[in-house]
């Protein structure tokens, strides 16, 4: 009986490690992922926004029933007079915030889902509750599939998906471009529809990019020369123009590679065609069976011995 001890063991370990290493190497090689500019999105121009919050009201008015959104009370507001969300939350899909550096340096900023071209939340959802529509590029959420694991929240670089912590029957809440409400009825998102100053432009990504570039070239010095979301995390369908640094407006500085590309490459390398796990199982079975055979004689011997003892063993 050969003892397949540490040597064999380390071999198996090595094989696993190699697979993982390969995954690492594969992930390093940057692979162009396809950006679909025909998908729909929005362009928010922070220099045009007047902070009227019509978009916030419209979003709740239109989506409240569908997204089970409720109004948020401020601490000082015992009468429940105002909807006073401080941040995106389980009842707020879009929100206008103010960044004020000084009396002259300030900007409004609107938050809502970025509708990534390669969304992390879709990549990580174990039950396909988060989906990305191939045609429109809309990242949508299906509460009937969702198990509430909140992995999407962990994954999203923009911290967009929000969970209803205070509810016994909670769900994830995020912008779905009014997919089932305003977009369906009027062909435009509620926030873009009501914006009185055209700060929110709704349309195809290519048109939005064209418009953004036009504004940049026509108003030199007015904007920061960067379209936020054009390249970030592999491109997003919600784009931003601003005169302020984007990270000051709460939009993180991000690499151009989608995090989902990185994780999926590693995951795919390990589990490609499920070959590695099956091979592992086969090898282990082989080794274990060989070991068992080696002990076969011992077993019979011990069983005989134990039969005698079994009565008093119980």
């Amino acid at each position: 009986m050969r003892k397949p001890s540490r040597r064999d063991f380390l071999k198996i370990m090595g094989a696993t490690g190699a697979a993982l290493l390969a995954g690492r190497a594969g992930a390093e090689a940057s692979e162009e992922h396809h950006v679909n500019n025909e998908t729909i999105g929005m362009l928010y121009d922070a220099t045009k926004c007047v902070g009227c919050k019509a978009c916030m009201s419209a979003c709740k008015r239109v989506n409240s029933d569908y997204g089970s959104l409720s109004y948020e009370q401020a601490k000082f507001d015992s009468d429940g007079l105002w909807d006073a969300p401080e941040d995106l939350s389980g009842s707020t899909r879009t929100l206008i915030k103010l960044f004020k550096e000084s009396d002259k340096q300030w900007s409004y900023v609107k938050y809502s889902c970025m509708h990534c071209q390669k969304p992390s939340c879709v990549s990580v959802c174990p039950v396909s509750a988060m989906t990305r529509d191939k045609m429109t590029g809309t990242v949508d959420y299906n509460k009937d599939a969702c198990i509430g694991c909140r992995y999407c929240q962990v994954a999203c670089a923009f911290n967009i998906p929000k969970f209803q912590w205070e509810k016994a029957i909670p769900q994830i809440v995020k912008c779905d471009l009014c997919k089932n409400t305003n977009l369906l009825k009027k062909g435009i998102t509620a926030c873009a529809e009501v914006c009185p100053v055209g700060a929110i432009m709704f349309g195809k990504r290519k048109d939005l990019l064209e418009e953004a570039n036009k504004r940049l070239s026509e108003n030199p010095g007015k904007y920061l020369n960067h379209i936020y979301g054009e390249k970030e995390v592999g491109g997003t369908n919600h784009l931003y123009l601003s005169a302020m640094q984007f990270n000051k407006l709460g939009l993180p500085v991000l690499a151009n590679e989608a995090p989902a590309e990185f994780s999926e490459k590693i995951q795919h390398t390990i589990y490609k065609g499920f070959i590695a796990p099956v091979a592992l199982y086969g090898t282990l079975c082989f080794v274990a069976l060989k070991n068992m055979k080696g002990h076969g004689t011992d077993d019979k011997h011990s069983e005989k011995e134990e039969k005698g003892e079994s009565d008093h063993g119980a």
């Binding site: 990549s123 039950v127 969702c146 198990i147 909140r150 029957i169 989902a260 994780s263 999926e264 995951q267």
Partner: peptide, 28 residues
């Protein structure tokens, strides 16, 4: 996990092939 997840009654989706999402480490 059943205590932690928000919508445990939907867990049956793990057994429905159309809902499988092989990209997700969580699924695995």
């Amino acid at each position: 996990v059943m205590v932690d997840v928000g919508r445990p009654w939907n867990s049956y989706n793990f057994f429905i092939p159309s809902k499988w999402q092989a990209n997700s480490a969580m699924f695995e």
